[in-house]
Design a protein around this nucleic acid. Sequence first.
DNA 1: GCCCCGCCTTGAGGCAGATCAAATCATGGC
DNA 2: GCCATGATTTGATCTGCCTCAAGGCGGGGC
Lengths: 245, 245
Amino acid sequence: MLELKVLPTGCANRRRSNACDTCGARPLSVCASIDDADLSRLDALAEHLDLQSGETLIQADEAASHVFNITSGSVRVYRLLSDGRRQITGFLFAGDFLGLATGDTYVFSAEAIEPVTACRFRKSDYRTLIRETPALETALLDRANHELVAAQNQMLLLGRKTALERVSTFLLEMPTQDPARPGPQERVHLPMTRAEIADYLGLTIETVSRVFTRLKTQGVIRLISLSEVRIEQPDVLRALADGEA
Amino acid sequence: MLELKVLPTGCANRRRSNACDTCGARPLSVCASIDDADLSRLDALAEHLDLQSGETLIQADEAASHVFNITSGSVRVYRLLSDGRRQITGFLFAGDFLGLATGDTYVFSAEAIEPVTACRFRKSDYRTLIRETPALETALLDRANHELVAAQNQMLLLGRKTALERVSTFLLEMPTQDPARPGPQERVHLPMTRAEIADYLGLTIETVSRVFTRLKTQGVIRLISLSEVRIEQPDVLRALADGEA
DNA sequence: GCCCCGCCTTGAGGCAGATCAAATCATGGC
DNA sequence: GCCATGATTTGATCTGCCTCAAGGCGGGGC
């Protein structure tokens, strides 16, 4: 059974108008596209969650009772085969939405890979709110369609790209760490392990590691630390990602 | 530039109440979930298309001006890499919806693989109609979410399954031909070529062919013709698809 | 009914990435 | 600071699928 720590912030939130006002993820999420009145109603239905690395938001095969909005941190979404093979279908970050894509039970699992804060809503509450808030539904539809395109990209990667192309693509699609200094050197933070990168790209740990080494040796990237990468030659990396080498 | 034959049925349709009334795909599609009044408005905006095998519905990188509803036949949706490698991201059949998942230009292509009929709508018209028809928007959101789950399935297949598991999974997810006789022998129609199956499963033609032969030799399936398969042992095929052998 | 053409099947050999194995390295606890 | 532990890197070998290369076959046109 799922055990999630729900922050006892109900009262505190009611004192200041609502928690959404100070939510860092608001401009990134579906919440950006609805007005203040609707946002207050949304906030009234929200539970605020605080998870440690490794804790579970969603467990496959359990009743699909809630939907989630990630407000900070990173989450892995994955599916398993019976013998333990794992495919990570996506990483989620602040502003990402999770959980609507199901029937009665979840078909995937989702876990924090670093400390995470999130809002959680009862699915039934959320459905009602959607029905009464067309702007929210439109925003969700847009987001779902955006995710479908991302999923098609990932299918192309998994079905037809080489290991070098996969890792290069991955590095380019991770959120850039420092948008204030967008120059030729972009910095990427990788909160996930090599094993998780491998399970996302349909490779093994060893292959991922070898490709990192290769990119490093060629001067395309530099490893600041295990989880911090500087892209030294973005153009070269883009060419590699698209198989133009 | 895209050239599609638009059937001159506008007047004929207006004589009987509307074309949707006789549309075989209606119970399968989003149209099933909206009432007659809304359906009439939808019908008034529709162009009816008739395509031959190989003709294009959507061309990647062109302006995303329309959305489509397939009413009969089969369609392949795919993306290409610059050197010609192809990933088919899905096959569409009667009732499937296509084209909303984009920004200003399409990022994928879609072509008929056998004679196809479809309804086409201007995206701007469709957006207006969606705004004014909550039931339609909800139906589209449900469908998008359903497709997202299917996409996650396909990522698991492409990233982690063996050739045998991929082909077995594929055979099980193709629409069953004869739902009237659901017994132990199910019959599956495959309107696509081996090359298309290969590009859908992330394999080569040869590997797909070898796996078919292997399944045939083991008595799991029988090839009635090149495009007609009878599943002799559905339980075995399901076990193979999930990697339980 | 026959012929052609494109699709499919089958075979032989090669290779990218997996597997197995062994250092080496980061990191948090004390 | 030192150590224990798990993650990462690196190396050697293996293998499932790809690539290259012939045949075989089915179905549409005449």
